[in-house]
Design a protein around this nucleic acid. Sequence first.
DNA 1: CTGAAAGCGCTTACAG
DNA 2: CTGAAAGCGCTTACAG
Lengths: 334, 334
Amino acid sequence: MPNRPTILDVAEKAGVSKSTVSLVLQGSKSVKESTRVVVRQAMADIGYVYNRSAATLRSSSSGLIGLVINDMRNPFFTEFAASLQMYLADQGYATVIANTDEDPKLQARMIASLVEHGVSGLVLSPSYGNETETLAALASTGTPAIQVFRRLDLATGFLPFIAPDYEQGSTIATEHLVSQGCKNIAFLGGLEGRPVTHERMSGYLSVLKAHGMAPIILTGEATRSFGRSMAASLRSTYPEVDGVLCFNDLVALGVLAHCAEHGPKAGKQLKVIGIDDIEDCLDSFPPLTSVSCNIPELAETTAKKLLVWITEGVAPEDTTRLPVSLTCRASSIG
Amino acid sequence: MPNRPTILDVAEKAGVSKSTVSLVLQGSKSVKESTRVVVRQAMADIGYVYNRSAATLRSSSSGLIGLVINDMRNPFFTEFAASLQMYLADQGYATVIANTDEDPKLQARMIASLVEHGVSGLVLSPSYGNETETLAALASTGTPAIQVFRRLDLATGFLPFIAPDYEQGSTIATEHLVSQGCKNIAFLGGLEGRPVTHERMSGYLSVLKAHGMAPIILTGEATRSFGRSMAASLRSTYPEVDGVLCFNDLVALGVLAHCAEHGPKAGKQLKVIGIDDIEDCLDSFPPLTSVSCNIPELAETTAKKLLVWITEGVAPEDTTRLPVSLTCRASSIG
DNA sequence: CTGAAAGCGCTTACAG
DNA sequence: CTGAAAGCGCTTACAG
């Protein structure tokens, strides 16, 4: 392969100066239509490929957006990532997705790497721990960055935060369980002491209080297998429980899996609700009622605010909460 | 924020020339340990951040690897992506993950964009269709690229291919069903006419032939919901079926979901096997027997071969098949 | 082991 | 509407 052609080659082929080629590349209005056509044709003829590194160096804007995710194996995050990437691609930005697997050390390294690559902006669904390093990596260049779903304590007033209104979500979910006649409602999953756990629990607590009911709380990992095992211990320890709100859909799906195997009948004897409304909710038995966070909308909002920040220098407000709704399916009606 | 410091600032602060700083950055052996320390310290002091765009421009190696995936919502691909990224990160490469959602148009655009960004190499799990454009985008710069899992027809001899040995997988899975006493074994899922469907079917067909059994084949989408609905029609149309091999785990999990709801008893009356061995196999009811492709190993093999190609110019052989194994769980033993 | 100089492929004012 | 020139921040031979 001979040396990759440059705008100089294009300019020569098209019989214009390289500035003109550059302007065509940027879609400038000040290039005559006829020259634009000639230049485009020349590019096609000699197989020109735009070199973004050069452009980035000169203009210090890479057109690259970093997305750092704490758990890419959770379908919820995957759906968010896919939506965000689609939207950004439409706007001419490429997305670099990095998975930190809840490892804060890795998170700091990934962010540092993305910053070196000159990302124009960053979306972070953070892992907890090591906050100082993570934020230092971010602060080193002043790259616009938004945190989503979870909030790092140290980052208030520095990293704008966008998330679904989990408190509202757990409120309407718990109200729904009450209206379905549940008398003993448990909350399952979510790691103790995490802000996001408390948020998702808060509506549950206030609704129970309003109805004079006592909370039953079993915290733990947000996984299917935790859901399965908790369903078992719930049954032996609190046999009176007839409704559960789960930290997320994975936990709820684990509960349903246990019920399918050992009973009680989900939907009938035990009403189950998850949070996130991932696609798998449709295919469980019975289909899972869940608090829908409208992931595509959340992704689009995040992308829009980030792009405004990047292109116009206007940072979003410190906290944005998006409304949620309850998608009722058979697991809570019966 | 004042202008981001450059190696010139570091050099000044450390009292050396900028070449020396550059050598330190590259970990060159020819810098005295004592100067190395001084330079590193200077970097830390003034908050220096490496500018990779500049380095890329000069050295034409970006340290960026593109991963283009046809379906990021399938946990199988997510696990592959996560493994690949971890391995590459260890080697100092950042991964750009792009999802094409089975859209070949999008695939061509994504690849073109990655190439513009100067990725050092590319891993492609292709969407079918539009092959010419996809390959043209790839060929435009001669970027080393490997296709995984699926193979584009036009790409033979041009895009090396790495995949699990699906034929072997379907062979051992079908043998297992036979050894468990199944008399009527069906194959479920996978789109008609796709090479990957035929591969996964081939072992099934040959084992059935060897045992003088007649094949029962229902092709279709590789999703949970397809699995559910196919389980229903299987039961009404072929009630004699006592074993099924599914195109992938999602289909098999759909079948299990149907069985949990309507019977027959999976594992007992109907033995079910999937392919891919994703994590969810552990949490279904009953746990799903599956052909394990050893995703982390596949990811590592792919990464290693790609890096050898990039750094030493040695392309991998045209086809690499990795061995598979059967992970037996309750869905096929009863 | 370290320094001075050229150049990677673009964009960006500035003239004309 | 188009051209000539400078420069973005590195790396890379080449001297010394």
